[in-house]
Design a protein around this nucleic acid. Structure first.
Length: 597
DNA sequence: ATAGGGTTAG
């Protein structure tokens, strides 16, 4: 429509309104070359430096135009070129340009300049300032900005208040966010979503879900939207609440929001994280519109389920579809390589990053160390760390210790742990990793000493948990526990299946029990590991022909892995077990990880 | 003639 008018070389409109119109249409089309051409001609004509009121909007449109094209610094130049004093609208446009294009510090600086120029904060500028403050995530800045907003007549404005709620939530000040939210006289989807997102991000899943239900009840039609849905689905996927997640999916379907690429991406992640990778694939293949997040979500699904070559294929399809991979894409690929022990492929993808203009970050280095050391190339991993151009992080050293544990290299593990503690970390993970590495190498005294050091520092070991969802309820188990109401039946079914397994030739392997205890005790310790109890419940409640899906927060031990393979053969059941790193699908005596994990 | 929220990894 309006685009047909754009023939800049021939005739240029001369009336300010016509020029403004032209700029707006270029903005909408994000047509950078034509816009820049027009900018040059406007500069030559002197329109931009004219103090006449009729020409003022032109500068504003230019600021917005460059913001739309993702060039916030050009927006700032356009602002700087406009004659002083700048109208409030110019400031608002500038703030929006900077805040929306990832330059929050510059946005806050500009906001200060605005205040110094005696332009009062308004319902237009405050939301942008709040967005910038949210990105900076400083509690002090958040409080100052709120205090400033309280002195304006706009505190009850939905835009202002919503953006302040979002700012507090992203500055890890959830109580303040909620207080402000509760005080709002009017709330809309954005206010609700900002609050739900804050709870989700903080791991307060119950609060997030409760608020979601309230939003459904309180919002006038059309009610919640794609953003709200994707937040809530994300909550379901981190908590692996498949049944709740599916009901939210049904709701998305009814409201047609399931065609949103944002909603689709979070649904892919939900099904994948709950162990239903086939559903995730099907969903992806049927998506009417895919974006980068959707491609990454499906890559993650393939990687976590050990479908390594499917991940590689998707990567090529993604590039063929015209999507530029980002840093997450490469994390997925490196994870996929690590899960399959494909060292050379991993190195190739790592090298490929720079070709795509992506600087490897600490996480990529950690993934490479994970890949090398899991594959047994400990010396190479150490050399790789030494050559890193950035300071190795906690997770880099952690990845090395994990590899050392698997390959029983206690000395390198101790070296890595010492380095890890130098980074100032005191997380229980590091101590446990080292202790386990010692135990794996048979150095029980060192293992005990490490655990004691950990206790002395007041660090608690993370308890091993497994859980299983059935009939909308999550059942959680710890090793050897008899708390579950159906405990007797669970132990009985495990004993019965255990006999069948032993007849089929299964011999319990206690060599990996990490504490130096007697034989009997070792046997009991592994037979009632939390994942086996959860599987026991699964045998009782999950209908035949349906996979038993169990989640675990720690790595599955070697004996449980062997036992579950055998159990799948003896019972004819499929067991999907998610540990802290990946998925295992046990079917007919074999595991999808190929015993490499 | 200007304004607020975002997927995916860990």
């Amino acid at each position: 429509m309006t685009l047909l008018r754009v023939h800049l070389t021939s005739s240029l409109p001369t009336s300010p309104p016509a020029l403004a119109d032209l700029l707006l249409s270029l903005s909408a089309a994000r047509s950078l070359p034509k816009g820049q051409q027009l900018h040059a001609r406007l500069l030559k004509s002197g329109f931009l430096s004219s103090p006449a009121a009729a020409f003022r909007p032109l500068s504003n449109h230019l600021i917005t135009f460059y913001a739309r094209c993702g060039l916030p610094l050009h927006s700032r130049d356009a602002f700087d070129d406009s004659p002083s004093p700048r109208p409030p609208a110019a400031w608002s446009s500038l703030l929006s340009a900077l805040a929306q294009n990832g330059l929050p510090l510059l946005a806050i600086t500009a906001f200060r300049s605005m205040l110094l120029a005696a332009v009062p904060p308004s319902d237009r500028s405050l939301p942008s300032a709040a967005k910038a403050a949210a990105a900076i995530s400083s509690p002090f800045l958040a409080c100052s900005l709120h205090a400033l907003a309280l002195k304006t007549p706009f505190t009850d404005d939905v835009f202002v208040a919503s953006s302040l709620v979002d700012m507090y939530a992203k500055s890890a000040l959830l109580p303040q966010a909620r207080r402000l939210f509760d005080l709002m006289p009017h709330r809309n989807v954005v206010s609700w979503s900002a609050m739900i997102y804050g709870y989700a991000e903080a791991g307060l899943e119950t609060d997030a879900l409760q608020l979601f239900k309230m939003a459904l009840a309180e919002l006038e039609p059309p009610g919640v939207n794609d953003f709200t849905f994707s937040c809530v689905i994300r909550v379901c996927s981190t908590a692996t609440l498949l049944e709740l997640g599916s009901s939210v999916h049904a709701h998305c379907f009814k409201t047609s929001f399931d065609s949103s690429p944002f909603v689709g991406s979070s649904l892919i992640s939900l099904y994948s994280k709950c162990g239903l990778v086939e559903e995730a694939y099907e969903l992806f293949d049927r998506m009417p519109e895919r974006n980068l997040g959707a491609w990454n979500a499906i890559l993650i699904a393939s990687a976590q389920h050990g479908h390594t070559h499917a991940a590689f294929d998707r990567f090529h399809q993604m590039k063929a579809a015209g999507f530029a991979p980002n840093f997450i894409t490469f994390l997925c690929l490196l994870t996929a390589c690590s899960h399959a022990g494909l060292v050379d492929e991993g190195k190739r993808y790592f090298a490929l990053m720079s070709e795509h203009g992506i600087e490897p970050g600490a996480q990529h280095y950690a993934a490479m160390v994970d890949l090398l050391s899991r594959a047994g190339r400990i010396t190479e991993a150490v050399a790789f760390i030494e050559e890193m151009p950035i300071e190795p992080t906690e997770s880099v050293w952690g990845a090395l210790i994990t590899g050392c544990r698997i390959h029983k290299d206690a000395d390198t593990a101790a070296y890595a742990a010492a380095k890890l503690f130098e980074t100032g970390s005191s997380s229980s993970g590091a101590h446990m990793l080292l202790s386990n590495a010692y135990a794996a190498a048979g150095r029980y005294a060192d293992a005990a000493r490490t655990r004691k050091a950990m206790r002395d520092q007041g660090v608690r070991k993370e308890t091993g948990l497994s859980w299983l969802e059935t009939a909308g309820k999550v059942h959680t188990f710890v090793s050897g526990d008899r708390v579950h109401p159906r405990s007797d039946e669970i132990y009985a079914v495990l004993a019965e299946v255990g006999e069948r397994m032993e007849r089929a030739g299964y011999v319990p392997d206690t060599s990996h029990v990490l504490r130096d205890v007697g034989g009997e005790e070792k046997l009991a310790a592994i037979w009632y590991h939390s994942e086996r109890l959860a599987i026991g419940l699964g045998l009782l409640v999950v209908p035949e022909g349906q996979a038993i899906r169990v989640m675990k927060n720690l790595r599955v031990c070697v004996d449980c892995h062997t036992a579950i393979k055998c159990l799948s053969k003896c019972t004819g059941r499929t067991i999907v077990l998610r540990d802290n790193n990946r998925f295992h699908r046990f079917e007919d005596g074999v595991c999808s990880c190929g015993d490499y994990w």
